[in-house]
Design a protein around this nucleic acid. Structure first.
Lengths: 209, 209, 209, 209
DNA sequence: AATGAATGAGCATTCATTCAT
DNA sequence: TATGAATGAATGCTCATTCAT
């Protein structure tokens, strides 16, 4: 068990490289990720990174898959709780608030990897996995179509906060998600459907234009 | 092939560099944008790019500002049309479909520049400008809060298509946007508010368009 | 008297450029001095710096001449005071301590310009001027040869502090300078203090070799 | 002229780069030292210089350490000789004369690297090493404090010659150094010469070696 | 199987200088 | 006379990749 020199198969090595990659991307962005930076961060020889991950894309895939556990993981954990069954929009809005209000590094890291799929087809399956997983978790409390729309809206809201530097407005997020829930004209108190009906006012369109 | 040498006074130079930058980003991504690539694409001396844009960030700002005219420009143009007043969700869903269904290069280009604001604070004001402009255009037909949510949802839907490789589903987009519109329990047929009330369960594509 | 636009002869302009050059060298070293940096610091057009100073060497000469007022200026001021006549070594050691113990920027700036003469012959006359001026000021209280040696020793002590990061030891400086004073065999008082009145005869090289 | 290509394994490579750096600094000054100039001078690929020396500072450190062998090396060699024990000031003055009277390139090179520590903290430890080594060599013949002052005075005298273009005056140097030697009140013989038999106390040369 | 050495291409940026006003 | 525009050269440095163990 003593540390063998020149271990033949070091299964931790690969994981340590992925962890280091996440730290590098978190600190310096994907643009700062290179064989060198990750090797230095992981404290492994340069050749080791190219050996375990033939290309940076391959490393990014592993990193993205691991990063996906962030928001998605928390959401799946809470998906079981009665709180979420009781009021999906408010539960999601609160979760977003906690996530985005905490250390921004993790949030930016996760989104940067996710958005990188735009230009790296290799990452798309992983991005799709993430969307699927979150959608599925939400579909415990609503239908699939609504779940997917909720995910899209959450993404859009988060992006507006992250990209424009705007403040996160939890009440706004909750209300808009509540609107997305399927109409329940006949069952006004259905707990699975989410929040209570949105207040009638809200900056209604009135007679603009 | 050699362009005119010794082009001492070239007032269009700056604009040509921005155009070239957009072409480069469109073809090779932001990662492929460098003073060298843009200089070659614009057929100007290398020093000319650094002279007109002291840093790449500066060039990206100019490029993003110009790219913002893409979707946002079309939306603002159509914002005047009665079609949009008649049915905001279906008009927006159609516009998205046309945009995303056409040449993907422009779409990806625009989104890549937009999303780059995540890691480049210099781009955030421009990203905010874009959001503001689109929101304002939409607010001709609905309230500001709803407009902002519509933009967020559209962003989220587009991203899902672009990032996961999913197909764009116009009916789904329309129905979800329709749900976002403020509740009008008393005025079921308000034309300014957009579509007719959506069918109760799930957003079947119904028979639009 | 009102600020004329496009003043024909702006005598302040030249001085402002020199002042800016000193600030630039102080902050970023001679290596950081360029037409651009000094123009930016002085808030004058780039062309203005090349106009007033055809070469950087020319600008450095002007800057060094002005910087020479630092230590040398203080020394000349105090040269009149009875304190210096009473005890040259302790007065000089104290002055060095004050100079080197204060803001290091000025000290480094002055020395950097002075030492630049090593590689820039254009600066040598100015460096020689400085040495001459200080030597002459000291020669009010001792002979010329001793004065020159005192200057050399002070330079060497300062350099050791600046180059090696050592602490300045005022007592050591005072004692070593005291030893440099010409022998006063008739006043055995205290040779280490060197405070005794300077002897009339100068330290002729005697007949060694 | 093309040297052997594909020199994959070249253990002297590093040393050759340092040698080339010294030649470059000697010929064109530190300002003329760049990865490119040194690569050309050493006839190695550009990447080789950045591989062996991650930064120019690192290269300068190696170069300074090697240059330190110049004057310091000669001094240490002669430190053993009876000549130095017999008359420290005259021996040092003669050594300085030989050093400064010979090829100025080496002298300027050594001083330029040494003085560069003023603005490059990375060089300070090496500058301190040099001072320590020379001081220690001198302390075989006098006490540490005096040795340090002798080094300072020698530095100051050399600088005056190098910076102002003055002639080196060996007799002057010898006499001033003689004054620096610790007082020997009991042997009033001739304090200016310092050649007289050294008093018993003080770390005189006594019977070392 | 794993890795240190090595290298040429490329990077953003700064620069002195030239030129046309 | 004074200056903004313009440019090619050069800078330190990072990099993916190759190669020889």
């Amino acid at each position: 068990m003593a540390a063998a020199r020149a271990r033949r198969h070091d299964p931790e090595r690969r994981q340590r490289i992925v962890d280091a990659a996440l730290r590098v991307v978190g600190a310096r962005g994907i643009a700062g990720l290179s064989h060198r930076t990750v090797a230095a961060e992981a404290d492994v020889p340069l050749g080791s990174t190219t050996y375990h991950f033939a290309s940076l894309d391959e490393l990014l895939v592993a990193a993205l898959r691991q990063a996906n556990e962030g928001f998605g993981g928390q959401l799946r954990e809470r998906a079981e709780l009665p709180e979420m069954a009781a009021g999906l929009p408010s539960a999601l809005a609160r979760l977003m608030g906690e996530w985005i209000g905490g250390d921004r590094t993790g949030v930016e890291l996760e989104y940067e990897l996710y958005l990188a799929a735009l230009r790296r087809p290799a990452l798309r399956p992983v991005a799709a996995e993430w969307t699927e997983a979150v959608t599925e978790a939400l579909s415990r409390h609503t239908d699939l179509v609504t779940a997917r729309a909720l995910v899209a809206l959450m993404d859009g809201i988060c992006l507006q906060v992250l990209l424009t530097g705007a403040e996160y407005d939890e009440a706004y997020a909750r209300d808009m998600m509540a609107r997305l829930l399927p109409a329940r004209p006949d069952i006004p108190g259905d707990p699975t459907s989410g929040e209570a009906p949105v207040s009638s006012e809200t900056p209604g369109p009135s007679t603009d234009t």
